[in-house]
Amino acid sequence: ATNIVGKVKWYNSTKNFGFIEQDNGGKDVFVHKSAVDAAGLHSLEEGQDVIFDLEEKQGKAYAVNLRIK
């Protein structure tokens, strides 16, 4: 899925991951530091509006192509 809109539920910059809540009511999506770095960001803030693509690997969904809304 592409261009999914959501809000950062939480992001832990020490542990380098967090979760994004989808605006469409879907399951929360894992986001890793690598996606944050690829977006040219240092971190994510709770409540921040983002747009992302959804990829699945080994049955787990995660956010890629992250951008600030």
Score class of each variant (00 low, 15 high):
Lys57Pro: 06
Ala1Gly: 15
Phe30Asn: 01
Gln22Cys: 04
Ser43Cys: 05
Asp23His: 15
Val50Ser: 01
Lys33Val: 08
Gly6Cys: 01
Lys69Asp: 09
Ile68Thr: 08
Asn24Cys: 05
Asp53Ile: 03
Ile4Pro: 02
Gly40Arg: 08
Asp23Cys: 06
Gln22Thr: 14
Ala61Trp: 14
Leu66Ala: 01
Gly47Pro: 02
Leu54Lys: 13
Gln48His: 06
Val31Phe: 14
Gly40Pro: 02
Thr2Ser: 12
Lys57Cys: 05
Glu56Tyr: 13
Lys7Arg: 12
Ala63Gly: 09
Ile51Lys: 14
Ala1Trp: 07
Ile20Thr: 01
Gly6Glu: 00
Arg67Val: 10
Thr2Val: 11
Lys7Tyr: 06
Val64Gln: 09
Gln58Trp: 15
Gly18Trp: 02
Gln48Ala: 11
Gly26Met: 15
Ile20Leu: 10
Ser34Trp: 13
Ala35Val: 12
Gln58Glu: 13
Glu56Pro: 05
Asn16Ala: 11
Gly25His: 14
Lys9Met: 04
Glu46Gly: 11
Lys57Leu: 14
Phe30His: 02
Asp53Thr: 05
Lys69Cys: 05
Ser34Val: 09
Asn3Gln: 07
Lys57Arg: 11
Gln58Met: 12
His32Ile: 02
Phe52Ser: 01
Gly47Gln: 08
Leu66Val: 13
Gly6Arg: 01
Lys9Val: 05
Leu66Gln: 00
Trp10Tyr: 10
Asn12Arg: 13
Ser34Arg: 09
Glu21Tyr: 13
Val64Ser: 10
Asp23Tyr: 15
Leu44Ala: 02
Gly40Gln: 09
Ile51Gly: 04
Leu66Pro: 02
Asp53Gln: 04
Asp28Arg: 04
Leu66Phe: 02
Glu55Asp: 11
Asn3Ile: 03
Lys7Asn: 05
Gln58Thr: 09
Lys27Ser: 09
Glu45His: 15
Gln48Asp: 08
Asn12Met: 11
Phe30Ser: 02
Ile20Ala: 01
Ser34Thr: 13
Lys15Met: 10
Ile51Ser: 07
Ala1Ile: 13
Lys15Val: 10
Ala35Asp: 06
Leu54Phe: 11
Glu46Leu: 12
Gly59Trp: 09
Lys7Gln: 06
